[in-house]
Every structure is written in C-alpha cells, then in structure tokens.
Simulated scan of single mutants.
Amino acid sequence: MTITQLKYVLAVAEHQNFTRAAQKTFVTQPTLSMQIQKLEDQLDVQIFDRSKKPIELTDIGAKIVHQARNIVNEANRITDIVDQQKGYIGGEFKLGVIPTVMPTLLPMFLTNFIKKYPKVTLKIEELNTDQIMERLEEGHLDAAIAATPLENPNIKERPLYYEPFMAYVPHNHRLSSKEVLEPSDLDTQDLLLLEDGHCFRDGVINLCTTPRNKDEEKFTLESGSFETLVKLSNEGLGMTLLPYLHTLDMPIKEKELFKEFKEPSPAREVSIIFHKSELKMQIIEALRSTIAGVVKGAITFQNVQIISPLNK
C-alpha cells in the first residue's frame, strides 16, 4: 500500500469517475486504474462499485476512504513540518470565503498579502458556510474565512475581527425617527433578508425577538445581494441590516440612513477557520496577521455582543 495509491482512491471518491480523477492527479487513466486495482487485490475488497454510474463507494470503501484521508493528511504534515522548520511560506493554498465577507475583506488585504508573500499561490473560492465545512473536512480547502462560532469539533477557529450590524432605515420607515436602535425594535415582517444559505441571514434572524410569520408576508425575496436589499428599502418595502464593512463605500446619501444599535452592539465574529490537523499553519498565520493588521484601522468598535450564525 502506498500514499500514491491512497491519493488515487481519494480522487476517484471525489470525482466519481476514473478519467476525471486521473486528470486531476496528472496520471493516465490506465495507470490510476491499475494502481487502485492493485490496492483492492492486496486488501481483497472492492473499494468502488464500478457497475454504478457515477461510480459509488462500497460500504467498506467508504471506511477506507475515511482512513485514507487521515493518512494522506498526516503524510502531508511531514512536508509541512520541514517547511515550518525552514521558515518557508509558499506553495498553493486553497482558501474559501463566505459571500458576505468576500467583496469587502478581499480588496482590503489581498494586495498586501501577495506583495509580502510572493511564493504563496492563493486559490480563493466564494462558498457558503455549509460548503466550506464540507470541503475543510474532506481536505479540499486549506482554510476559510467565515462567521463563527460554528461548534464543529473537527474545525479550529481563530477570530479576525468583530463586525457590528448596521440598520438601513429609509425616511418613510416607522423607525426613521429613532437615533439608536435596539434589537427589540426589529420586526421580521418588515425586515428584508438575504436568501436562505447565508449565515448573515441566520444571524439577523437570531437577533430578532419576534418570530417571522410567513402567512403575513406580502412577498418573498430570494436575493444574495445587499445592494438589492438597499434598493428595495428605498422603494418603501422595509428596512434591512448590513455588516459594517459593507457600509463604508456606499454613497453619502445612503450612509445617512444607517443607524447603529445600542451598546453592546450586535455583531458577527469573522474568523479564519481550518481543520484540526493544522496543516500549512505558517500560511494560515501569515493570512491572519495580514488581515488583522488592515482591518484594525477600519473597525474600532469594542463593546459588541456576538450573534451566533447558527440557527437557534
């Protein structure tokens, strides 16, 4: 049994196709198939059910894949140990970022990071929290930036910053005359929310004290865009909440309509998260320090209350 064979098994398990797995592992399809067959013969079991389209794992195959992932991760740790000893910060690094953080945070730190660590090749992908957790568990991401806490024993979280919620309240809204808001002021019936799947939506719902009554909704909205929510608010269809960093580049006319919450301000915790195996920690730490450095100048709020993105 070799590490290479196990990597081939993991590739086929991921892509459910021998040809695609061979392409991803940069070998010919016959070579990959032969090595997996050799491993199956040695173990005297079938790892894959080749009669299914797409290819599926057998029951024992699923257990083998789980263990193979642990073994490959531990093998990668050897290279990681050597890199850390040498002080080397470089190589490919796969980073996932949730959609409500990507457009504001990425422009703030990416140029600085690339200049400071030119040997790192960042591969950044916008993913929702569920996708991030799955890919971290399976080893397809090295780290991610997401709203926490997530309470997963296999994932470690290192906070980067705390971002307050800001209320966008148009002139004709019932709360427009209030200088400072409290969570008890919010009514989910006139609160415009992001579509399902966004952790910021879940955090806002957790903040609200009144439950959402779907029978009384005049319309439903499926939008992943804060800009859309603001435009609908301007049309008199309700108010909305945005993370603080999203408010910085908005037109002055719209900035004037934002209201803060009474302290401690409701906020989300944004963290860099990674698998408990702690691979590529030197790059993770480089990212953390770079981001913390640039965000510190943008967010000065201290007295905040973290609203969990987990559904209550």
Rank of each mutant, 00 (worst) to 15 (best):
D80E: 08
K52D: 08
L57K: 02
T58F: 00
I81G: 03
R50W: 11
E74D: 11
Y88E: 00
L43R: 13
K53T: 12
G87M: 06
E92Y: 04
E56K: 11
L57G: 02
K94I: 07
T79G: 12
D44F: 15
K86E: 09
K52A: 13
F48E: 02
I64D: 01
I89W: 00
D80Q: 05
R50F: 15
N76D: 11
R69H: 11
G87Q: 04
I78Q: 08
I78K: 06
V72C: 05
F93A: 03
G87L: 05
I55F: 07
D59C: 05
L43Y: 12
N70M: 08
I78T: 12
S51N: 13
D83T: 10
F93H: 02
V65F: 06
V65K: 01
R50T: 15
F48M: 08
D59W: 01
Q42C: 14
G61V: 03
Q85R: 14
I55P: 04
A62I: 06
I78P: 02
F93P: 00
K52M: 05
K53S: 15
I81L: 10
K86M: 09
T79R: 01
K52I: 09
Q85V: 15
Q46A: 13
E74N: 08
L57R: 01
G90W: 00
F48G: 04
V65M: 00
F93W: 00
Q46R: 14
T79Y: 06
R77A: 14
D59H: 07
D83Y: 06
D59T: 11
I55C: 13
R77P: 00
E92C: 09
G87F: 09
A68Q: 01
R77L: 14
Y88F: 14
T58K: 02
D83S: 15
D49A: 14
D59M: 07
R69T: 08
I60H: 12
A62H: 03
I81R: 04
I64N: 00
E92N: 10
D59I: 12
P54T: 10
G90L: 01
I81A: 07
V82T: 08
I71L: 02
N73R: 12
G90N: 01
I78F: 05
P54V: 13
R50N: 13
F48T: 05
Q46I: 11
